[in-house]
């Protein structure tokens, strides 16, 4: 434990912006820990990592870590990250977003980033709620749950983040919870390493907003739920669909080799220069 703490401290801007703003029991810190372990395991230097975020609780993550960090506008993190990556392809550009950030206001950018297959790693922390503004329902709030803007229960249906990413064409899609932290470390590492658009959906408890409004118990209870209601991709393959009802499938959902945007663009540059069609 001491070693892990020491490792994390190596990457934090501990002399600058602490304490952090996250509530007790929030899963964001666990995701940050996983991200740091993945970067450390890959042997990346702090200079070559860019961490980009949007708006919301997850949006504050970059401020705490000693990378090149960018806190953008709501929903637009992937578009900012696209600009950075295309100009400096040697950098590892990691984008962290919340469910509302990535799927509601940023939904269009999310599907097009997956389709375009720019070499980015996107981590989406899914806590089923807008936490920072006080508990409004998001595109991933399940049907029938409560939120401050759904006081009589939510009548909309949940968008499945990982499945959407797979359909939109992402090269790598994984899902974990913050309870399954070793899996999370591994998925983040693989998403960063993967050439192309890599997505990791992380189920994360928000006991203060979502949990309280829906009487789901404290952070420990909510993480116990994650432990008891998940099933690995491998095991899920062996079970009939009726036994998967209500279970969350975790692990690597998609991994495929697709042409990445930067490499395709390099071919365009070669062609344009070869044609001799100058000014």
């Amino acid at each position: 434990m001491r070693e892990i703490t020491r490792l994390i401290h190596k990457y934090l801007r501990h002399d600058k912006k602490f304490p952090h703003i996250w509530c007790p029991g929030c899963g964001n810190g666990i995701v940050l820990g996983s991200l740091i372990r993945a970067v450390d395991k890959m042997g990346l230097s702090k200079d070559e990592v860019v961490l980009v975020s949007g708006i919301g609780c997850s949006g504050r993550m970059p401020v705490y870590v000693d990378f090149n960090t960018l806190h953008t506008t709501h929903g637009r993190a992937l578009a900012f990250a696209t600009g950075i990556k295309l100009v400096k392809p040697q950098l590892k550009v990691i984008v962290v977003m919340g469910d509302g950030d990535a799927l509601a206001i940023g939904g269009n950018h999310f599907i097009h980033a997956a389709r375009r297959n720019v070499d980015l790693a996107a981590i989406i922390i899914n806590n089923h709620i807008y936490g920072m503004t006080g508990g409004q329902f998001s595109p991933t709030t399940p049907y029938g749950m409560r939120a401050t803007t759904a006081p009589y229960r939510n009548i909309e249906h949940e968008l499945k983040i990982a499945e959407l990413a797979a359909t939109a064409g992402a090269a790598f899609v994984g899902r974990s919870t913050v309870y399954h932290v070793k899996l999370l470390d591994n998925l983040i590492e693989r998403a960063i390493e993967k050439k192309g658009f890599g997505v990791v959906e992380v189920m994360s408890p928000c006991p203060v907003q979502y949990g309280r409004l829906n009487r789901l118990g404290d952070a420990v209870k909510m993480m116990e739920w994650q432990r008891d209601n998940t099933i690995s991709v491998e095991k899920a393959k062996e079970l009939p669909p009726e036994e998967l009802e209500g279970k969350l499938v975790i692990g690597v959902l998609v991994e495929r080799d697709l042409p990445i945007y930067q490499e395709e663009y390099e071919k365009i540059v070669e062609r344009a220069r070869g044609s001799g069609a100058a000014l």
């Binding site: 637009r76 992937l78 900012f80 990250a81 950075i84 950098l91 269009n108 950018h109």
Partner: peptide, 16 residues
């Protein structure tokens, strides 16, 4: 995909 993304990518590129 839209103008929101266009200006965002431009700012990202400039930061790089």
């Amino acid at each position: 995909e839209d103008e929101l993304a266009s200006i965002a990518a431009v700012i990202g590129a400039s930061l790089a």
